[in-house]
């Protein structure tokens, strides 16, 4: 049996983890409890974060959106701030799991689970999100790409805990897109996902383009050199096909139960064209 703690403050979390280093942190439970059932193992203590006031909420200040890690996917969908300023996140949350999973699962959980198939992750990467990590000693802020080090792995050590997500609001000239390919249209784990931020002039010249890809490598992948090569070109099917071609060559997907590596590459090659679909 696991002991369960629902602390009301971070200090209590630290204290429990100091006492019980094997304690597991429970956010929405949509991943941890599934894994616990599959492994048949129970941690000595489950620390639920749901009653800590500071870990929820979405706020915008000085051009930065700050999201509490216990914000659920449904909270993201309901947030006018996200919809207006971070459309790519809104789109990503829309295709995540299923309604009850969106009601329970959290952004912090999605980040700390660190699955390359995590639906919010490509959006966070393309938005240059940063995460706040807190411990009794200090607080540090790192880019999302630094935070996640591999499938299921993050830089969290000791008593550290994810306490916030900071996302700089992109220039209003950017348009955000999220395209996900799964085995079905709901309750799907992504086979390939792509978040894009595009800034295109009225004359269709690309001023800036950013792409982040999920499920095609051990972590979400971005290639700054590829991104920078798109600036100055004319937006349209030809460009998007070329984008797909280039990424298809660079990504390093694996074969698993859902798809082969070669299928992932084929899909990636065409996925940018889906930006043209409404």
């Amino acid at each position: 049996m696991s002991e369960v703690a629902l602390p009301a403050s971070l200090e209590e979390v630290y204290a429990i983890r100091k006492r019980e280093p094997g304690a597991a942190v429970l956010a929405g439970g949509t991943d941890l409890l599934v894994r616990m059932r599959a492994d048949g193992k129970k941690p000595p203590v489950l620390i639920g974060l749901e009653r800590i006031p500071g870990l929820s909420g979405i706020a915008i200040q000085d051009g930065v959106v700050r999201i509490g890690p216990m914000v659920t996917h449904q909270n993201l969908l309901d947030s006018p701030v996200i919809r207006k300023h971070l459309a790519v996140m809104h789109e990503a949350a829309q295709v995540l799991g299923s309604p009850p999973v969106r009601h329970m699962g959290t952004i912090g959980g999605n980040i700390c689970t660190a699955s390359p198939a995590g639906d919010l992750l490509p959006a966070l990467y393309v938005l240059d999100a940063e995460v706040e990590i807190s411990s009794p000693a200090k607080k540090r802020v790192v880019p999302i790409a630094t935070f996640i080090t591999g499938p299921g792995r993050t830089i969290l050590t000791g008593q550290e805990i994810l306490t916030g997500i900071r996302i700089p609001v992109p220039d209003p000239g950017y348009q955000g897109f999220y395209r996900k390919v799964g085995q079905r249209r709901a309750l799907a784990i992504s086979i390939v996902s792509m978040a894009a931020l595009l800034m295109v002039s009225p004359d269709k010249t690309v001023r800036s383009a950013r792409f982040a890809w999920g499920s095609v490598g051990p972590v979400v992948m971005r290639f700054p050199d590829v991104e920078s090569s798109f600036a100055g070109r004319t937006f349209g099917p030809a460009l998007l096909a070329d984008v797909g071609r280039q990424y298809s060559e660079r990504i390093r997907p694996i074969s698993d139960i859902r798809a082969s590596a070669s299928y992932r590459k084929m899909v990636a090659a065409g996925l940018p064209l889906k930006i043209l679909e409404q």
Binding site: V34, L46, H103
Partner: peptide
Amino acid sequence: GSGECGACTILVDGESRLSCLMIAAQ
């Protein structure tokens, strides 16, 4: 038992949740 089917759906504070992925303390 793993959040993939919705048969265990209940309402918690009016919102649908999966009771197979919740524990009593919550």
